[in-house]
Simulated assay, not measured.
Amino acid sequence: MAEILPQDLALEPARRLLAAGKPVAIPTETVYGLAADATNGEAVAGIFEAKGRPRFNPLIAHVSDRAMAERIAVLSPLAGRLADAFWPGPLTMVLPHRPESGIHPLVTAGLDTIALRLPRGFGRELIARLGRPLAAPSANISGRVSATTAAAVDAGLGDRIELIVDGGPTTVGLESTIIKIDGDAVTLLRPGGITAEEIEKVAGRSLSRGAKGVEAPGMLASHYAPNARIRLGAEDVRSGEALLAFGPDRAQGANLAVEVRNLSPSGDLREAATNLFAHLTELDRTNPPVIAVEPVPREGLGEAINDRLARAAAPRDTHGKRA
């Protein structure tokens, strides 16, 4: 079983494990990440093994500063402006990869681009102490609900890794926004903790949407999935269902729900984003066959919330797994 250490005691133990090629679960401002040395192929393979993650799915490389980022990727003037505005923070940029960077090919999944992020807090300090970038997808079983607490990490991965760093509940609660920069074009690959409108204001242009295949993490059709089926846009609640609510007004028949969690009683999208994965996990633990989800507005952070919910609701295959 994994040892759980508070982050103020965990910096050196985490560094030692990472230097030895072992994955470590760490807090970030978005969700908990399963981190490993991005330059060590065996260490990165340990992430895929622990998560059960498909190896065609690329990983984000996390850096401690702008200089480390520029040793790994080519930052255009536009990318530089966005980095100045949003780093450290929940923005990932997919950029041209420098082949001499030392990043292991498992991180990029064979692409000639790389996804880079500069996190806040413990993750940034740990990368600086290690002196190497960290590959760090969400610290959960692949395709399942992302973890926003150390306890959630332990429930999913506690028997597969040696250390979980406890930084308390994450503050953003959704994974980073991922954009791809190609010349002057900016494409939104995954909505997240920074809204499209915030990025457009700094970039001075509109974001396009739509990707060609899997260009970054979090783009598989089925992802972030609990065991229960998800029913979106619910205006009523059926007997035996759990209810993921939003705002002050309830769906018809809400009293029939076996359990209720409200993403934000006041209808605040930032609060809803912070609570999304934790509330899904709590409802799923009651073992309902279905979680009914009330409508969530799509503007601002609502775009990211609805993206995660749509992937969580993706159809299952004939074996009962997510398609």
Rank of each mutant, 00 (worst) to 15 (best):
P6M: 10
P6R: 13
A14D: 05
L18V: 10
A20C: 08
A20F: 05
Y32L: 00
Y32E: 04
G33A: 15
D37K: 09
A38D: 09
G41Q: 14
A45P: 00
G46P: 08
F48K: 12
K51E: 06
R53S: 03
F56E: 13
P58E: 01
R66T: 14
E70M: 13
P77Q: 07
R81G: 12
A83R: 01
F86A: 10
L91Q: 05
H97N: 06
P99S: 04
T108L: 05
D112Y: 02
A115D: 03
P119D: 08
R120T: 15
A128V: 04
R132S: 15
P133G: 06
A136Q: 07
S138Q: 04
I141N: 04
V145G: 08
S146Q: 06
T149A: 05
A152C: 05
V153T: 13
E162N: 07
D166A: 03
D166M: 09
P169M: 14
T171I: 15
L174P: 04
T177D: 07
I179R: 01
I181F: 07
G183W: 06
T187A: 02
T195C: 04
E197K: 00
I199Q: 04
I199T: 12
S206M: 12
S208F: 02
G210Q: 09
P217F: 06
P217D: 06
A221C: 01
S222Q: 14
P226V: 12
A228F: 08
A242F: 08
G247P: 12
P248G: 13
P248F: 05
R250T: 08
A251I: 02
Q252K: 13
Q252S: 15
E271I: 00
A272Y: 01
A273N: 06
T274I: 15
L276E: 03
L276N: 01
I305W: 03
I305R: 01
N306H: 00
D307I: 00
R311C: 10
A313P: 14
P315A: 15
D317R: 03
K321I: 11
